[in-house]
Simulated assay, not measured.
Amino acid sequence: MSSTSSGRAAGARDRDSEGRARNARPRDGLGRPLPYGADGVARQPEGVVRTPAETVAEAQELLEAGRPFHAHEVFEDAWKSRPAGERGLWRGLAQLAVGLTHAARGNVTGGARLLRRGAGAVREWTADTGEREPHGLDLAGLVAWAQELAVAVESGTAAPVDAAERAPRLRRET
């Protein structure tokens, strides 16, 4: 059996402690896989149940640090753990973070598409629930940010996208 430069058997799959397939390759700040053995950015633990306030605070820190892929993971945990009536909100926020991730990676089409999809999901959730600022979130501001960034990405006026510089404010500035 041959092995890779990391000592792993060629064709071997990374597994977590429960035997599920998991990619253990290190990742950069935008979530791109790096070669085994490279120094990467610490990954967000999966399946963490946080309060909405903890979710928003942690995601904001990650966004401001230029790590929208990791913020997406935090939103995804909320999407999976919050009550059914809130899942559309958290899913939309996760899509916004992934849209910023793709835009920062230079994926113009994917970035713009996900920014618009996330904005639409947030807008739809707001229309369905009538809530405008759940958990202190500035949903109208986030939708406007996503739409503006999608246009800038497609037109080339935002290239290259600096994820930290273009990070949204999740809560209204006071």
Rank of each mutant, 00 (worst) to 15 (best):
R22D: 01
A9E: 09
R20L: 09
R116P: 00
H102T: 02
E61Q: 15
G118A: 08
R132P: 00
L137K: 07
E54K: 11
L30S: 12
E58K: 12
E54H: 12
L34F: 09
V143Y: 05
V49R: 15
R43A: 14
T126W: 01
S2A: 15
D162K: 08
G106L: 07
L96P: 00
G37C: 10
A104W: 12
L89Q: 02
G111A: 05
G156D: 04
L170R: 05
A97D: 10
L100P: 02
G31E: 11
D162G: 02
A59N: 06
L170V: 09
L30M: 09
A103K: 06
P52V: 08
E61W: 00
G29N: 10
V41S: 02
P33W: 06
G111Q: 06
Q95K: 13
G37H: 08
P35V: 07
A9G: 05
A127Q: 12
A152C: 03
R27D: 00
L115P: 04
T126M: 14
E54I: 12
R22K: 15
D39P: 00
A65H: 01
E133V: 11
A150M: 07
V108Q: 07
R169H: 08
A65I: 00
E58W: 07
E165G: 11
G11H: 10
N107S: 13
R91F: 10
P83T: 11
D16I: 04
L100Q: 13
V41W: 07
T109Q: 14
D16T: 03
A97P: 03
P168W: 11
R123W: 02
A112E: 05
A53N: 05
A84H: 14
R22H: 04
P45Y: 01
W125H: 14
V41Q: 05
S155C: 01
A84M: 03
A150K: 12
E61D: 11
A112K: 03
R169A: 13
L63M: 04
E154M: 06
A94T: 03
F69K: 08
T101N: 07
A71F: 07
R50W: 10
V108K: 13
L142R: 08
R117V: 11
V161R: 13
K80I: 01
D16F: 04
L93Y: 01
H70R: 12
G66T: 03
A119D: 06
L89F: 01
Q44V: 15
E148T: 15
A65T: 03
T4K: 13
D14M: 03
G31I: 10
L149H: 06
D14F: 03
D28K: 08
V41I: 14
V49T: 14
A127L: 06
A164L: 12
L93T: 05
L63P: 00
H72A: 14
D16H: 07
L93I: 04
G31H: 13
G66Y: 02
L63Q: 04
A38G: 07
L89A: 02
A167S: 13
G99N: 07
P68M: 11
S6W: 10
L149D: 08
G19R: 12
R116S: 04
Y36L: 11
A94K: 14
P33R: 13
R169W: 08
R82E: 15
Q44Y: 00
E76C: 03
R123V: 00
W79A: 12
